[in-house]
Nucleic acid binder design. Structure first.
Lengths: 132, 132, 132, 132
DNA sequence: GTGGTCTAGACCACA
DNA sequence: GTGGTCTAGACCACG
């Protein structure tokens, strides 16, 4: 488990960490029950402040992605989103709209967008979902 | 041309404006050569600070989406992205990865992601592209 | 708007602040759209570190109770919980079970618990709910 | 007597144990004089650290819920709360306020809160009280 | 002015 | 050892 961040990016370091962890889960390289590196360990490895790591872990817990247990460490959750269905749909639509709009301005058409998504999904299939 | 922003959103207002304009273009409701509302006009209509509008227009110009002509206003450009092909591809992949990762954590699977994209693309097809 | 905390309490200061704000909303003394004191202002008034206030506000935003807007301040949200129905029910049951168990060990019986709740609800009725 | 804890909960394990015991008493499944499982036994059954169990028992004894007798084990006490009446009332009010405030933010109204409490109390009535 | 991020370092709580 | 809280202070981003 190796998490890298780019301190020169405009994206906050803690958000980069959050996304890296979610990515690892969505790729199946982290699964429910797995333990994340400890705050101090990750801080040392990535040369960032422990508070910054703690903040990322805190955000991940708030999203329900991990749980933090005093004395033991941080663990990937098994359960799915606890949001209401319409809220989930709303957020998905926003993500799709983001992809379509930015993709268009990058010069990609409908077919290329669909292909890029299909390619990503077949290259690294989403892990099976264990409903809570 | 009516641009709305949500002041309660965590997304900065100027970024919302930037995205709204890009969205309008990706939906064909704004096309190359169209004139955007003036800074003061838009600021009044949307009840936001003129500085905020100016900043959004600045960002749009930096991206090459609009041009600002002294005294006559801001106009949508006709040209496509000026980025190199590999950079464009890299950004597209990041967008797709964002959709897949966040979508997965919202509880959506591969099929649902593809469907959501296909639905969006057929509901409001992308306008034809005039390559630069 | 005066928020007080007890630095000697075992309950973390930021959690005390979170609860005070939620209390004020549940009592109708803060309503949707109201602005909270600024981070620095509250920190000065309550003699605590601005980071601690910021953390409380961050938690409140994560819960969807307030929104934070750079440059403008923090505002009470109008919308209700975005959690799924079964999650909401589960949390309510846990709260009720907490009241019943702890109340019993304090020496209160069923009637006294019901009366205490009824009294609280009639003393300061819950504000009307504006569904999102 | 089977006590379960959820290691993934943010609530400390020893506090969960404390609450489980108090819950069992408030449901009548443990009554005055009953013996609790030994520290080692419970630690094995629940797969937790004996120190954690010991700490929970310590907290229960401090609250006057159980007594620990050298060599014979821990026993549920028969006596009620030893707190002064106004302190008991103050704590009850805090519990009620907690329920009302959090319940409101979960989207529940006065009627639903009263109903949830009434339902809980009729589903598993509180055991008769033997005042100290 | 507002909030947001990051660092540094102290001290506490849990297992 | 683990995570959790709090302080202090620097610097950036938004309106």
């Amino acid at each position: 488990m190796r998490l890298r961040v780019d301190p020169t990016s405009p994206e906050p370091i803690f958000e980069q960490l959050v996304f890296r962890v979610k990515e690892a889960i969505a790729q199946g390289s982290l699964v429910g029950g797995d333990r994340l590196p400890s705050v101090r360990e990750l801080a040392r490895d990535a040369s960032i402040n422990p508070n910054t790591v703690a903040r990322a872990y805190e955000a991940l817990e708030a999203e329900g992605v991990i749980v933090r247990r005093q004395g033991s460490g941080c663990f990937v959750t098994e359960k799915g989103s606890s949001l209401a269905t319409n809220e989930r749909k709303r957020r998905l639509d926003a993500l799709v709209q983001r992809l379509v709009t930015e993709g268009f301005h990058l010069g990609f058409g409908a077919r290329e967008l669909r292909d890029a998504l299909a390619e990503r999904l077949s290259a690294t299939p989403l892990p099976p979902r264990r409903d809570s």
